[in-house]
């Protein structure tokens, strides 16, 4: 537990003033889920991913997605070597423990699909050979707000594969000042001290499942799920997978908060990150506000 707090402290050194988002990112990692960061360029997405990799001693790779990228660019390809006169397999960047998929919405749906499938299956099949991905395996994908030109918006079914979506946003003025004074944070990220080994992380995520959730809490989760389904401001309600994800994320959050049982506050803390990107509004308007309004209207204690 202390290790977790320490890890958080380390990452906070390079991602300034974003404690909540950091905690969510960590929660996502603990809950064995993939993370989507939605932001304008230059907000520190890369730094965050990099720092996480350092602190947990994860093997780290970064892929910049573009519209002319092919699935093979991610998964790997057999390349003819003119020197040896035979084909050798070049593993794609996906074979790593932490993959930063930058601007995922710039890639074609086909390429996006290849990555997302790998994320889901945690294995890759190339030329008929199935190869497992390393463990742990996390994808931190970033995307610019989807209404930018020349992008392919991730379909909802794909978004469902990300446990959470967070957005870092502009830094607070005083933080920005510190940032300006502090020099290149990306460089500093390289110098972060490792806190927990990747094996330690696997063990920690094992503990998440042991966090207890009472019947009343499950009931609350169910009511939240139901509320998204009956609310006709949304095109469709949350899937059962989202429900499981919500519960798992809440458990991880409880663990990070130092409890061995989950409370409604845990659900509410991860709710926006888990639910927002899976919902879309029927008639425009802010999904974020609507999702948040559900928290206000769905009774925590059954009445």
């Amino acid at each position: 537990m202390q290790a977790l707090t320490k890890a958080l402290g380390e990452v906070a050194k390079v991602v300034l003033g974003k404690e909540d988002q950091l905690k969510l990112a960590l929660t996502c990692l603990m809950a064995n889920g993939h993370l989507l960061i939605e932001d304008l360029p230059g907000m520190g997405k890369t730094t965050l991913a990099h720092a996480l990799a350092r602190v947990f001693q994860l093997e780290y790779r970064r892929v910049q997605f573009t519209s002319d990228m092919l699935p093979a660019d991610i998964l790997g390809v057999s390349v003819f070597n003119p020197n040896t006169q035979d084909f050798t397999l070049r593993e794609g960047p996906v074979f790593t423990q932490l993959l930063l998929a930058d601007e995922i919405n710039r890639a074609t749906p086909k390429t996006q699909g290849a990555l997302l499938e790998a994320m889901e299956e945690r294995q890759v099949t190339l030329d008929g050979v199935t190869r497992p991905l390393p463990r742990p395996f996390f994808v931190v994908a970033t995307q610019n707000p989807s209404d930018q030109a020349g992008t392919f918006v991730l379909p909802e079914s794909q978004l469902d594969r990300f446990l959470m979506r967070i957005s870092l946003g502009y830094p607070a003025p005083e933080v920005e000042l510190a940032l300006l004074a502090g020099g290149d944070l990306r460089e500093q990220a390289r110098s972060l001290k490792p806190v927990i080994s990747s094996d330690g992380l696997v063990k920690l995520s094992g503990m998440v499942d042991k966090v207890r959730a009472s019947h009343e809490l499950l009931d609350y989760v169910q009511r939240l799920m139901d509320a998204t389904r009956t609310d006709d401001r949304f095109v469709a309600g949350l899937s059962p997978r989202a429900g499981l994800g919500l519960l798992k994320a809440a458990r991880a959050w409880a663990l990070i908060s130092g409890r061995d049982y989950a409370v409604p506050e845990d659900i509410q803390a991860v709710w926006a990150a888990v639910a927002e990107h899976r919902l879309s509004a029927r008639q425009g308007g802010s999904v974020s506000a609507m999702t948040q309004s559900l928290l206000q209207s769905v009774p925590v204690v059954r009445r």
Partner: peptide, 8 residues
Amino acid sequence: VAGDSLRR
């Protein structure tokens, strides 16, 4: 670098 698009 690993991860670069093959098209480029």
